[in-house]
Every structure is written in structure tokens, then in C-alpha cells.
Nucleic acid binder design. Structure first.
Lengths: 223, 223
DNA sequence: AACTTCATTCTTGTATACAAAATCATTGAC
DNA sequence: GTCAATGATTTTGTATACAAGAATGAAGTT
């Protein structure tokens, strides 16, 4: 048990919130939660602080911790910002990327290709992560890379959902190829545009997913 | 004392870090700091969590809290990202801003003008804040506005320094006018460009400030 | 003299205890 | 019957106590 308890709890709570275990606005009872994790309130409260910082909770003074399920509109907003951050990474990377890093990016594209051929969504997902992180770093702006990572992480579960959509993996792969090409050509404008669209399409796909999800919800209620 | 102790401590520590009271990499002793604030370690540790989330501290497990003074290069990086976020705000705002908000923006420009005429840097600073926050909100993307505010806040002390530079206030005012004009015309591209440059120039000015600061440091050491 | 090992000390991480504020329920007035 | 006020209870915020890991230093070996 080398890790800090508070960090494990944060990770677990993060997953629970993101997977919809709690509903929006729900108050988290410190004592009951602490008991369920078999810890005292102290590490739990530290986890609360961290979750509040990343926007998953809001702490109201002397009122408690309330889960903040980003509404549909906010998710779209987040994708919009993510698209712009990725575009910026792409623009800078097109100018600054080195040959070894370019090689690494090429490898991830190949690995993505294999994953698509085998229909392995998990493998694709992992390589996709790698691909994007490489570009963040290639921007040469470390602060930007960190911000991008932070937001990427927050949108992670929604990205993952999308790979379930028919044909999305192949489409995504094609976009990766276009991004790689722009980087190889040092074409800043193109790299920015293609990356922006690559992420924006995810926002759109997310929209589609939500619509069909809500329809099924309505269906259930209408029974 | 309606506020939470932890929040007051966070604010105070934030100021101390940002004003350079601590040096980069310095370890903050929980017990001594808690004593100096006349509180126990508990609220202090909560403050640490928050400061770590905003990047001012790094918490190493069982090692302690270390202050993270962004190096010169990182400050430039942050201005670079800030420029892009503001550009995005401007682009969206040009499309979405309403007449009442436009009026409010016009007022801040007038107030800035008066501040310049009177040579009141503090008043200018306050109105400048207002001006930028209005544009963040006018973007219509609430998440983006929050992100912009967060980064703006982090760069705050460095912005403030710049107003000391000769002629910077008048120059800044001119840029504000150009931004307002772009918004009035609904010119997305222009709003984005002018705002990007408006912030980028701050990065440049910051550069100038740091160079002269370091020169004076060297001078002192060379005595 | 330098390096390793072990014990001591110090510091962080967690649990528990206590204080203060907010919520809830009961009682009383209108 | 509804609303307000007040006391009880719950819950947060802070302090303190305790446990466990890390840093420090002394002693012993090579």
C-alpha cells in the first residue's frame, strides 16, 4: 500500500461520478462514504478537495459536497475548448516536431491500423491516447500539454463510448493519418484544422449518443 | 468569520507564493506554517490540496509540499495559452454578444480611458479585469469562460506589473478599442486576432520585465 | 576515510475527538 | 391549518492523537 489512501479514494470516486453512480446535485455523506471505503473522514475530505478542483464536485461551505454532473450543454462546451487546445498543439507541433517523435507518431498510427483490422476497440483506445499525448508534447509548450492532458482526461469516458459507434474507429484512423501528414509537411494551418475537426466530430458524436440515450430513457419512462 | 479557515489560508499562501515569498522547490513545513497561521495542520493541508490543484504546489507522497515557481519559460507558455483562450472567447463573443453586454463593454472602455487620463493604474487595472471577464462570459461558453478566468487569475500578478511600464496603459487602451470595434462589427476573425495579440504582447512585455529584473539581480550579485 | 547498516527522530498520513454551524422537528401562536 | 420560533440532532470544520514512512546521524566494517 504505497499509494496514498486519499488518492485511491479520489480515483474511485472519480470513476463513480463519471460512470453516473451518483445523480447530479446529490450530496455525498462524508461519514457514510468514509465507512464504505473503510477510512476516516480525513482522507475522504482530501479526495473531495481534489475532485472539487477538477470540477466533479462543488463544495459549499458548511453545507457539504455535491456532485456536479456536467450537463449535456457543458460537455459540448468542453469538447469545443478541447478542439481548440488540440488545434493549438497541432499548430505548434507542425513547426516543432522532431524526426524521432514523428517516428513514434507513425508507429501509433500503424498500431491503430492493426487495432482497427482486428476490431479491437480497447487496443485502439490505448493507441489513440498515445497518439494524442505525443502531439501534446510535440507542441513544445509544456504548460499547454498539461492543460490538454487535464481536459482530455476529463472527457475520457465520453471518448471511449464513441468507439462503440459503428465505423467510428475507421473514421478516426483516417483522421489520424491526415494529422500525421500535416505534421510531416510542417503544415501548421492544416494540422490545426484537422485536429480541431477531429475533436469537434467527437463532440458531435457525443451529441448523437446523448440523443439516442435520452430517447431510450424516455422509452423506459413511457412504458 | 463566516469563511472557511482553509480558504483564507489558501488565499494567503497563494499570494505569498505568487509574490515570491518562497523560492522554487522550497518545502513548506506543515507544522511551522500551521503555527504561523495559528491553526492546526488540518485546514492547512486542505489549502495545500487546493494549491496543488492550481499548480502552485506539488505534493510528493510522504515527502511534503514543494512550491512550484513557474520558470520564466513556463510563464511565456502560459501567456501563449492565455492568448489562444482569449482569442477563442473573442471569436465566439463576436458571434454571440448581446447589445446590453456590448453596452457594458463600452462602459469599461470609457472607464479605462478616464483611468489613463488620470494616470490611475489601479483603476485601470480593475476596469481591465472587468473588460476581459465580460468578454469571457460573452463567449457563451461557460466552461471556456471558467478556464479563461482560472488562467487569467494565475497570470494576474504579472499583468499588474506590466502597467508600470511606460506607455503600456495607453497602448492597452488602444487595443481594447480595437477589440470593441471587432465585437461591434461581429467580425470573428478580427476579434480573435486582436485579442490574441493583446495578450501575446503581454507575454512579450513580461519577457522585457524579466530581462531587466534579472539584469538588476546580476548587478546586485556582482557588487 | 568512505560506505553501509541500523536506530533515532522528524514528518507526513490517518483516525478520532471536539466545536460550531446548519438542518430538522417539535411546539406554540395566529 | 400554516407559519414562526426554538431546541434537538445531524453534519461540517478544526484540533489533537496516533501510526507509518522518510530523513538523519552514529556506529561499525572494509
Amino acid at each position: 500500500m504505497s499509494e496514498r489512501m486519499a488518492d485511491k479514494i479520489r480515483a474511485k470516486l472519480e470513476e463513480m461520478i463519471v460512470t453516473g453512480e451518483f445523480s447530479d446535485g446529490e450530496r455525498l455523506d462524508e461519514i457514510r462514504l468514509a465507512d464504505s471505503f473503510d477510512v476516516s473522514r480525513t482522507p475522504l475530505r482530501e479526495a473531495f478537495q481534489q475532485l472539487a478542483a477538477s470540477g466533479l464536485l462543488v463544495l459549499e461551505a458548511r453545507r457539504g459536497a455535491f456532485v456536479r454532473q456536467p450537463a449535456f450543454e457543458e460537455m459540448i462546451e468542453m469538447f469545443e475548448v478541447m478542439a481548440e487546445l488540440e488545434a493549438m498543439c497541432g499548430r505548434l507541433a507542425a513547426r516543432r516536431v522532431s524526426e524521432p517523435v514523428l517516428d513514434a507518431i507513425r508507429e501509433t498510427v500503424l498500431a491503430c491500423e492493426e487495432a482497427v483490422n482486428r476490431g479491437e476497440a480497447d487496443a485502439y483506445y490505448a493507441e489513440n491516447e498515445h497518439f494524442h499525448h505525443l502531439i501534446y508534447d510535440a507542441s513544445g509548450n509544456h504548460f499547454l500539454a498539461e492543460e490538454a492532458r487535464r481536459l482530455h482526461r476529463r472527457l475520457q469516458p465520453f471518448r471511449r463510448m464513441q468507439l462503440q459507434l459503428r465505423g467510428r474507429m475507421a473514421q478516426s484512423l483516417g483522421e489520424h493519418r491526415a494529422i500525421l501528414e500535416a505534421l510531416e509537411n510542417g503544415d501548421e494551418a492544416s494540422a490545426a484544422t484537422v485536429l480541431r475537426d477531429h475533436v469537434a466530430v467527437q463532440g458531435g458524436k457525443f451529441n448523437d449518443l446523448m440523443v439516442s440515450y435520452r430517447r431510450s430513457q424516455l422509452h423506459q419512462k413511457a412504458r
